[in-house]
Amino acid sequence: MKQFKLHSFFIALAGAALLASCHKDKVAPTTDKPTAQRAGMYVLNQGGVGHNNSTLTYYDYSSKTLVADQFSAANTAQLGDTGNDLGIYGTKMYIVVNNSNAIYITQAKTAKQIKKITLNQPRSVVFNRNYAFVTSYNGTVSVIDTASLTITKTITVGDDPEQMAISNGKLYVANSGGLLYPNPPTNTLSVIDLNTLTETKKITVQVNPISVAADSYNNIYVLSLGDFNTVPAGLTVVDATTDAVKSKPSVSLGYNVPIYAQGDFIYYPTTTDNISFQIAVYNTKTQTVSATNFITDGTVVTTPYTISGDPSTGEIFIGDAKDYSSNGSVVAFDKTGKKEYSITAGINPGKIVLVNK
């Protein structure tokens, strides 16, 4: 989403070379404006597909130090291949590592491993009422009890499910079909009733849905990559009350399709050439684009790979993958779109989460 971002397999389709790179134990950021109740920021770096070099960067707000791989430091072990998603629920953190077929459950404050769950090509994780839901490329959503840390149910959805979002008592799952190549990808959004934990329907959206976000007005936003040929990437807005498609706003998307909801706004990257990017701001209350570029001070983000934020301050964080093969960065902006600071991340920073004190 899930933030997901340009996912590893689509990077391969786009022909980007993902190579290994070295990290130092601590790297000093430029400047900092820490948030009072936050302990720090985790950044899950995907690394390169097949290079077994995923890392978990940790930036401590108090000491202003950056640990390049907190998972390795806490566990004397490597994360593995293609870390794809990251989430904190209560005192635990869930790290989804796609190509290593692993979900690491750790202590949120230290990243010390509590348990490892093996799952076939897991992709994304969301949480609801003491359950963690994890998509898997075998066409399922696994339901993990967050107390026992065991899989209690497996729900069949569509082909190659990616990101998810929760709204109006339902879980919405993007079925990409991205691995069906050379056959065309699929175009459905599964709807799972969170009371019965069963799929109730599939909604037709634009082809190859990847990233999903929910607003506070019972709307679901789905970014799709298209078929990389004749069908372009696009945005679908779904009414979570009726499960009907409300609109398909005109957008110019590239191969990078992270999406993030905060307050009354949805943030996502746009481009016309896959070279220069802007961060569009979509007003969820008026259902209109309120800004073609959130960044107002001229700061350049080369390759926006993930978008996150801090609702308590209005800050927006953008992970920049740069050239996909060397260390990326995370740039923090205030709510007016002006840069506050940046930190060095690992290769392909794909998910950002904040941990409280």
Results as ranks from 00 to 15, higher is better:
317 F>G: 14
292 T>N: 01
269 P>Q: 07
81 D>K: 12
105 I>P: 07
193 D>N: 15
215 D>Y: 13
189 L>W: 02
14 A>I: 13
336 T>L: 11
41 M>K: 03
167 S>P: 05
135 T>L: 11
269 P>M: 04
313 T>F: 06
156 T>M: 01
96 V>M: 10
230 T>D: 15
171 L>A: 03
159 D>M: 07
349 P>Q: 02
62 S>V: 14
235 L>C: 04
121 Q>S: 12
225 L>T: 06
331 V>W: 09
284 T>W: 06
259 I>C: 09
25 D>S: 13
297 D>P: 03
203 I>D: 12
301 V>E: 03
270 T>Y: 11
80 G>H: 00
62 S>C: 08
337 G>A: 09
66 L>P: 04
197 L>Y: 07
330 V>M: 04
5 K>A: 14
304 P>A: 07
216 S>D: 10
287 Q>A: 09
174 A>T: 06
85 D>H: 01
203 I>R: 10
76 T>G: 08
340 E>W: 00
87 G>F: 06
23 H>C: 14
94 Y>N: 08
88 I>H: 06
117 I>L: 14
22 C>F: 10
306 T>K: 01
253 L>N: 11
319 G>W: 07
257 V>N: 01
71 F>I: 04
315 E>L: 04
172 Y>R: 03
128 N>D: 08
275 I>Q: 11
205 V>T: 10
66 L>V: 02
320 D>N: 01
171 L>Q: 03
303 T>G: 10
10 F>M: 12
353 V>Y: 07
26 K>M: 15
159 D>H: 13
199 E>M: 08
129 R>F: 06
101 N>V: 05
266 I>C: 05
127 F>Y: 07
298 G>N: 02
194 L>S: 02
298 G>R: 03
70 Q>K: 14
183 N>F: 04
233 A>F: 12
52 N>A: 01
109 K>H: 10
132 A>S: 04
224 S>Q: 07
168 N>M: 14
315 E>P: 01
104 Y>I: 11
291 A>N: 08
145 D>A: 05
220 I>Y: 01
85 D>Y: 00
16 A>E: 09
3 Q>I: 01
148 S>W: 00
324 Y>F: 07
204 T>S: 14
113 Q>G: 08
257 V>W: 00
37 Q>G: 13
272 T>D: 10
163 Q>L: 07
26 K>S: 14
259 I>R: 12
318 I>L: 02
176 S>N: 15
272 T>Q: 12
247 S>H: 12
167 S>A: 15
170 K>L: 01
82 T>V: 09
103 I>G: 03
256 N>Y: 13
75 N>V: 08
75 N>C: 11
32 D>W: 10
230 T>E: 11
251 V>P: 02
225 L>S: 12
125 V>L: 08
93 M>Y: 10
250 S>E: 13
244 A>C: 14
320 D>H: 02
329 S>C: 09
57 T>C: 08
348 N>V: 12
90 G>P: 12
89 Y>I: 13
225 L>K: 13
22 C>H: 15
320 D>V: 00
135 T>H: 10
51 H>N: 09
88 I>N: 05
57 T>N: 05
234 G>R: 02
201 K>I: 09
